[in-house]
């Protein structure tokens, strides 16, 4: 009973941790707009957490500058499992207008598994909200997968996905489900 309750709750109480990896601040204020009375993300249980240790969903905005990349990855690795990674805006997906710059390391999916990518420059709050709600479903799936793995005898759950091999820079498609504006 408690296992089901926990699985259900996982989707109903996603806490966000927002990382700005060199964003122009456009996506950031749209994320804040999601929390305002007009859109009110709290009705789905969303809450901005102060520390990555509390978070379920990591929201990344910005084109991953050279300076911010290791910090972003470190903060992501500090988020406990099960976790979801959502990128906001085109920058973390492709580099957007900064693509090709010597100091821009986008896309994020080269380094970690991205669950949901919300495209747009900047995406509308509705789109962000849609992406976040989809992420909650993925969280629930991950929890179920973990339970399944535990049943099959893996004590620590499925292998963490963060240590996947880093593919070559060129041939990385933007992974995850894209949400069109």
């Amino acid at each position: 009973m408690f296992k089901n309750l926990i699985t259900e709750s996982t989707a109903k109480s996603p806490w966000l941790f927002h990382i700005n990896s060199g964003s122009c601040n456009g996506c950031d204020i749209e994320l804040v707009a999601v929390l305002t009375p007009r859109y009110d993300a709290e009705r789905f249980g969303f809450k901005l957490a102060g520390s990555p240790r509390h978070a379920d969903i990591v929201v990344v905005s910005g084109p991953l500058t050279q300076q911010s990349l290791p910090r972003t990855l470190r903060a992501i690795s500090q988020v406990p499992e099960p976790r979801c990674i959502v990128t906001i805006g085109s920058c973390p997906q492709s580099g957007n207008v900064f693509k090709g710059s010597y100091s821009v390391m986008a896309p994020l999916s080269k380094y970690v598994h991205v669950d949901v990518a919300v495209a747009g420059c900047t995406p509308k709050p509705e789109a962000i909200m849609d992406g976040l709600v989809q992420a909650t479903e993925i969280l629930k799936e991950k929890r179920k997968a973990w339970l399944e793995a535990k049943k099959n005898g893996l004590k620590d759950g499925p292998k963490a996905e963060t240590e996947q091999e880093v593919p070559a820079a060129e041939d990385v498609p933007a992974s995850g489900e894209e949400v069109q504006q």
Binding site: L5, T7, K12, P37, R43
Partner: peptide, 24 residues
Amino acid sequence: QKRVGPPILQPMYDFFKLMGKETI
């Protein structure tokens, strides 16, 4: 604040969700 707000059981959801998370 003129919001819809979370369901009244939200703290329960938060609590049970945290029970299922990894403890680092």
